[in-house]
Design a protein around this nucleic acid. Structure first.
Length: 206
DNA sequence: AACCAGGAGACAT
DNA sequence: ATGTCTCATGGT
């Protein structure tokens, strides 16, 4: 007898069927992706787009250029996406981290997922979700993002989901691993969950 | 005009 | 360990 398909796989299929393939993460470069991950914290994407546009306008959306900016000047540019003091500081810390780790072009293959995660978590302003998102979309690590939408979706489907990111992540770590999603699937999965969550849909998919 | 968005940190309990 | 507050802007 064969094992029944995991609920995660079922949800993934249902989401893909409903919303189709997503074009995520919306960024032209890896650097832009990482900055976007910081800017979007608790903020609507439309506001992040304004900041990204402003950064491009001032030619500040490269590692070298951003490092030349003072925290105060960066604040003004990224202002539309809110939390500007904290986010400008985080962006600059991330820039320095990229430099010291030579982490712009290479994928840091010498670091395990856990090592990379804790390294990123060491930066002020980068918490578990932002770290995971950067790992998934910038460093090609197969990771499931346990954001609010994901936790909401899973609890809607009858699971007892811990309320915080880290606890949910640990609670389902083995289930996610057992589902054996590919990198591309996990990248799509997060995108689909967010897009689905934005529709405020409270109906069960399976 | 409240309420929320693709969170995280500081602080009190 | 586990809650609660605050941070900031723009859309609905």
């Amino acid at each position: 007898m064969q094992k029944e398909e995991s609920v995660f796989r079922q949800l993934y299929s249902a989401l893909m069927e409903r919303h189709g393939r997503q074009d995520w993460w919306p960024a032209e470069t890896t650097f832009e992706m990482m900055i976007g991950a910081v800017l979007v914290q608790n903020t609507a994407w439309v506001n992040v787009e304004k900041s990204i546009f402003a950064l491009k306008e001032t030619n500040a959306l490269t590692l070298e250029a951003m490092l030349q900016l003072s925290a105060e000047r960066l604040q003004i540019i990224i202002r539309p996406s809110g939390f500007m003091k904290a986010k400008s500081k985080t962006c600059l810390a991330l820039c320095r981290w990229i430099c010291t780790n030579d982490a712009l072009e290479n994928k840091l293959g010498h670091m395990s997922d856990d090592a990379l995660r804790s390294s990123l978590l060491g930066l002020s302003g980068i918490g578990p979700e932002t770290a995971d998102v950067i790992m998934l979309y910038a460093y090609d690590r197969p990771i499931f993002i346990w954001d609010t939408y994901a936790r909401r979706l899973l609890s809607l489907h009858g699971f007892d989901v811990p309320q915080t990111y880290e606890k949910a992540r640990r609670a389902f770590a083995s289930d996610i691993a057992a589902a054996r999603f590919s990198l591309e699937d996990l990248a799509q999965f997060h995108a689909l969950i967010v897009e689905h969550g934005k529709q405020n849909s409270a109906e069960r998919l399976i």
